[in-house]
């Protein structure tokens, strides 16, 4: 992997998300005006009602596998085959991620399987949230 994967550039609206990720915490926002629903990606208003009264909170980090593809083509920073996944967080929102600690095969990657967040530092400022299968107790 000669090159690194594309890294995000935080904006004023998303900086709290990336600062939390740097501390290995997954933070989301929710509406503080009634509905209380969590939302993603970050913005300074509730996407349902438009209220600017919102708050950040620490999410559980629990999710299930909603959908994915397994890319077999080379891409900077990736060793194919690798899965590009969308997970559904317990709090409701979905986010794109990679699944780690798991074979990148259709047999290992089962839709609706339980996952939990793990963090991988990419640079001084950027740590990405990945997800890994929850192993049986």
């Amino acid at each position: 992997m000669p090159q690194s994967r594309p890294l995000p550039e935080p904006t004023p609206e998303t900086l709290p998300f990336w600062e939390a990720a740097r501390k290995n915490e997954l933070h989301l926002q929710r509406c503080a005006d009634g509905c209380g629903k969590a939302y993603f990606p970050p913005r300074r208003f509730c996407p349902r009602c438009g209220s600017r009264n919102t708050e950040w909170f620490r999410a559980s980090g629990r999710a299930t596998l909603y959908s994915y593809v397994i890319s077999h083509r080379p891409a900077p920073g990736f060793a194919p085959p690798y899965a590009i996944a969308v997970v559904e967080l317990d709090e409701g929102p979905r986010m794109m991620t990679n699944i780690v600690g798991c074979e990148q095969t259709q047999d290992a990657l089962r839709l609706d399987m339980p996952l939990t967040v793990v963090f991988a530092q990419q640079s001084d400022t950027i740590t990405l949230p990945f997800f890994t299968p929850v192993t049986g107790d």
Binding site: P8, E9, P10, T11, P41, A75, L128
Partner: peptide, 15 residues
């Protein structure tokens, strides 16, 4: 890199 896709999709290989 600062767009929503640049922050929340491209880093995971959806390019």
């Amino acid at each position: 890199a600062g767009s929503l896709e640049g922050q929340f999709e491209a880093p995971f290989g959806a390019v």
